[in-house]
Design a protein around this nucleic acid. Structure first.
Length: 123
RNA sequence: GCAGAGAGUUGAGUGGUUGCUGUAGCUAGUCUAUAGAGGAAAGUCCGGGCUCCACAGGGCACGAUGCCGGAUAACGUCCGGGCGGGGUGACCCGACGGAAAGUGCCACAGAAAAUACACAGCCGCUAUGCGGCAAUGGUGAAAUGGUGCGGUAAGAGCGCACCGGCGGUAUGGAGACAUGCCGGCCUGGCAAACCCCAUCGGGAGCAAGGUCAUGUAAGGAGGGGUUGAUGCUGCCCGCGUACCCUCCGGGUUGACCGCAUGAAGGGCUGGGCAACCAGUUCUCUAGAGAGAUGACCACAUAAACAGAACCCGGCUUACAGACUCUCUGCGCUU
RNA sequence: GGGGAUAUCGUCUAGCGGUUAGGACGAGGGAUUUUCAGUCCUUAAACCGGGGUUCGAUUCCCCGUAUCCCUA
């Protein structure tokens, strides 16, 4: 679980990310991101697991795993005011931990969020 | 040994690294310590607590329950018993009040499906008619007690015996009911058809409700109106409030309480066949507000169904594996 | 979280207040036509699952499953 200041909770914020942000898709997850105009604040993450994916137990486990992938990458990310929403797809049920970790890492690097990459601007 | 029946327990643990939520501490650190999902947390099918609404009003509707007794805060739950059914048995199952209160339905077949009737038929006579009869036949899910003997023109509870049902009565039992005696043979099924009887049920639900804060314009237009509007499910009465509806415009989208000590759980003692009750002692055991238990490694291998959101008592449904106790039938051995 | 509703051929539906599952579109076959379309005839195809009540259940009752709606 991430500390509270890194969480993206409000439905309105998530809708903003969907509408104005860019997205990067893999077979199991979709990553939406949107750069806020405000200069203050942290990077914020939201996780979406719909009822299509499974029961409450399955959804909880997937959400926890996704949080963990982000948590392990947190130190390598650029400190930019980004709102990020990660949406789980139905295929995620069968993916194991290491594959999921790799997928998320790839998506993050494609989105240009890693610290060593040259800076991309997302508008 | 094999095949079963009933009751119950468990549903993973230890260590390490790294994280989350609550609480406590002071040195106020991204510190230390400590606690952290279930037997079903599920379905939301019942019952209650709690909160607000008229402190809970009357009538009619409506809904639920339905053998008897007990337990319980209450229940559609549980325990014990009765009756009926299933099983060789341990044991299991049962919406199990009323069909002479009334209404309705009972296809096809069949003479007839409910105030019984008389198709084929049987019998008698003064015989092309009149009278007696309901045994036999076939139909059907169901045909007006069953079996046997007597009886008769032929038949028939017409008579008798046993069985079954009904009514009365006596005894036993707290009662459901059981057993005995007597009576006569009058009453098909369906109430998970309407219904009748008995008992119970006021409504809404923690997004209930309360406190504080912030902010604003108790604003404008149109309409309704005491036979109306709303609280208060449907209708009528009764009571409270004085406004209500539609459109336009404006403000809030915060914090705290409710909210984790409870009809609580464990042990012991006593009462009770039991459910359960009483006494005593010990324990404190999640509390979020987009929603907390994760990830990785090691211990041989970790796996079922499944994730709390106001709280309890049940019911129902899902469930890998492991274990305990009691009992039954059959076979074998001694 | 709380409250409510529905489920019938491949699709849209009717139906039943008890004993027969009907229609339209679509699909297959045939006829007409030189061929296609159209038209006509015809065939197959369903009561969400499991129990119960009943002589008999799509219908009545119970339990489940799936889908949909309302509520801040």
């Amino acid at each position: 679980m991430l500390p509270k200041k890194f969480r993206l909770c409000k439905n309105a914020d998530i809708r903003t990310v969907y509408r104005k942000g860019r997205s990067y898709a893999a077979e199991t997850v979709v990553l939406h991101l949107y750069r806020r105009s405000a200069e203050t604040g942290n990077m914020r993450f939201g996780f979406v697991t719909s009822k299509k994916i499974g029961s409450a137990v399955v959804r909880n486990r997937i959400r926890r795993r996704l949080r963990e992938t982000i948590h392990s990458q947190l130190n390598h990310l650029k400190p930019v005011q980004l709102d990020i929403v990660i949406v789980a797809r139905a295929a995620i049920k069968d993916e194991n931990w290491s594959d999921l970790n790799l997928t998320v890492e790839k998506l993050i690097s494609r989105a240009g969020m890693l610290q060593m990459d040259p800076i991309h601007e997302n508008r």
